[in-house]
Design a protein around this nucleic acid. Structure first.
Lengths: 210, 210
DNA sequence: TTTTGTGAAAGTTTTCACAGCG
DNA sequence: CGCTGTGAAAACTTTCACAAAA
């Protein structure tokens, strides 16, 4: 439709490009070309150029891409100019692992609240945060300015948690629960299911003869 | 190429279909139609029928699909007829969360070994397993019959761990480290990066005006 | 009648190949 | 000359719409 829309597949690759460019920068490479990036990504040069071309004419013919300016371009496009605030719902082992995962903070995400129902957990401090009861989501999410909610609960309550997040004005959800959740179309959902990934790998093991 | 090859996108959806069908079975539904499944998946009936049609003619016109037989069909196709043995490399918070995640066992995966380099962890028992040093991968993986390796290490060592897994004959890797790993083409890799998912959501927040 | 299975159409993504620019 | 940017072709995926079967 929109002629300058960025394809979904390209959007999903932008964070990977960003990571590769940060790697290149750390390796003191001021400039890279599409072949170099393709190699780092396990992709191909044409794909890299096409993807970047959706963001504008960012390279220099005969030379390549300036790493620093490309990083700033992609970061801006991904909306990573300011820290984004995240809340975690469901503070079991996965929720706890996510809260203490350094990779989020490194990439500009801050966990500002964690929720659970378990009376044994509510009120307990973890790191700098105190676990809150999920009934407090409605007030806490806006208060803390949480824009993204991570659902790390069992499947049975995930939809209810998503509904509560949406009712609080949240527009982005990362769902780790093994169930497809329904949300209004203006809300973005990403679904990560570890068991699904293992099953896909199992398919390849079962069909490797082909 | 192969005329009866199942498209990649369909393969990636098979585990989701399986989950929905198990849900339907738990809800005492002996038969479902493509519309019902589509609703559970957030998909559409044509997609469901097309996907199933790649596996054969599994339905009954005018009726729908027999839940039990479809479950057995998809399970077989996914190679989930026997328990698949999994090893976890990198036993930090994520590795530990994965080891104790009940969802794997429920779906026929068994964690048979965990590895780390940290001397404070090696030799310590977790659940029924003792953490081993990564140098033991080469002997332990074949010994324990591990077919899938989960990499949950920092980025810096992930490629080395993948190489060790491949050298031990492993043909399937699930990589949680924030780096693209290279493997021979006969090895299947799935890459899950939590920070990438948040960044994709950030894109949608930054572009919701569209 | 209901719902599948499926060719064909439409839409999307990747790859090709080369003109264009530094 | 080298590498980008990009139309056009090829490949892949989704959606449509209807004949066929129970």
């Amino acid at each position: 439709m929109n002629p300058d829309a960025v394809p979904q597949t390209t959007i999903a690759r932008l964070p990977i490009y960003l990571r590769c460019l940060l790697q290149a920068q750390a390796a003191q490479m001021p400039v890279v070309n599409s072949g170099t990036i393709a190699k780092m990504m396990g992709s191909n040069p044409a794909q890299v150029r096409k993807d970047f071309s959706y963001l504008g004419e960012l390279g220099t013919r005969g030379i390549g891409y300036d790493v620093a300016s490309l990083i700033s371009h992609i970061s801006r496009r991904l909306g990573l100019t300011a820290t984004r605030r995240v809340a975690i719902v469901g503070f079991g082992r996965l929720g706890q692992a996510l809260q203490s995962y350094g990779g989020f903070h490194e990439r500009g995400f801050e966990v500002v609240a964690v929720f659970d129902t378990d009376p044994a957990k509510v009120g307990v401090g973890f790191g700098q945060l105190v676990v809150r009861h999920i009934d407090e989501m409605r007030t806490t999410l806006p208060e803390e300015g949480a824009e993204i909610v991570i659902i790390a609960t069992p499947a049975g309550v995930a939809q209810r948690m998503a509904d509560a997040a949406v009712a609080s004005g949240v527009k982005a959800i990362l769902n780790f629960a093994p169930i497809s959740i329904e949300v209004p179309e203006e809300v973005a959902v990403r679904h990560v299911e570890m068991a699904v990934e293992l099953q896909i790998l199992s398919f390849h093991l079962a069909n490797k003869a082909e």
